Computed example of a mutant assay.
Amino acid sequence: MSISDELSAAGYKVWIDKNEMRGNIYDKMYEAVDNAYLVLMFLSENYKLSENCKREGKLAADKRKRIIPIITQDNYKMDGWTGMYFIILFICA
């Protein structure tokens, strides 16, 4: 069972960008982050290189959402924009 399945089974509403991107993707991302209580970010090199993921991460940080980084790639190092946001969030939160 996936993390989203587990959370859904526990009664949480789960929004996954790859499943929910219909219409204007920026409006959908904004709405999802704006309405989120908690943001889980599944970090990998591909995630870090994605401009849309970067936008979501910046928006979540700007809105001071609770963010839990989950590293999904062996030997992944949080650096670049991912490292910057999490260092700022962990120090300032």
Rank of each mutant, 00 (worst) to 15 (best):
V33A: 03
E51W: 04
E51H: 12
M29S: 10
L49Y: 11
Y30T: 08
A60R: 07
A36D: 09
M41R: 01
E56H: 04
V39R: 07
L40W: 05
K54T: 08
N35G: 15
L49K: 15
Y26A: 03
A60D: 04
N24S: 13
C53P: 05
F42D: 01
F42C: 14
L59P: 01
S50P: 10
K48G: 02
S50N: 09
D27L: 07
E56V: 01
K54Y: 10
F42Y: 12
D27K: 13
E31F: 01
M41P: 08
N46D: 15
K28V: 15
L38G: 01
A32G: 11
E51F: 10
E51D: 14
E56S: 04
F42Q: 09
A32I: 03
Y47L: 04
D27Y: 03
V39A: 11
V33W: 03
L40G: 04
R55M: 09
M29V: 13
Y26T: 06
E45Q: 15
S44A: 13
R55Q: 10
V39Q: 02
Y37P: 00
V39M: 14
L59T: 10
L43E: 08
N35C: 06
L38D: 01
K48S: 14
C53A: 12
F42H: 09
K48Y: 07
A32F: 05
F42K: 02
E31W: 00
C53G: 08
V33P: 03
A36M: 09
M29L: 15
N35D: 12
M41Q: 06
M29I: 15
A36K: 05
G57A: 14
I25H: 09
Y26F: 14
E51I: 11
K58Y: 10
M29W: 01
L43N: 10
K58T: 08
M29Y: 10
I25G: 00
Y30V: 00
S44R: 11
C53N: 12
G57E: 05
K28I: 13
M29G: 00
L43A: 10
L40D: 03
Y30D: 08
L40K: 06
L59K: 14
V39G: 05
N35S: 12
S44W: 12
S50I: 04
Y30C: 00
N35M: 04
N46E: 15
S44Y: 13
A36N: 08
N35Q: 14
Y37S: 13
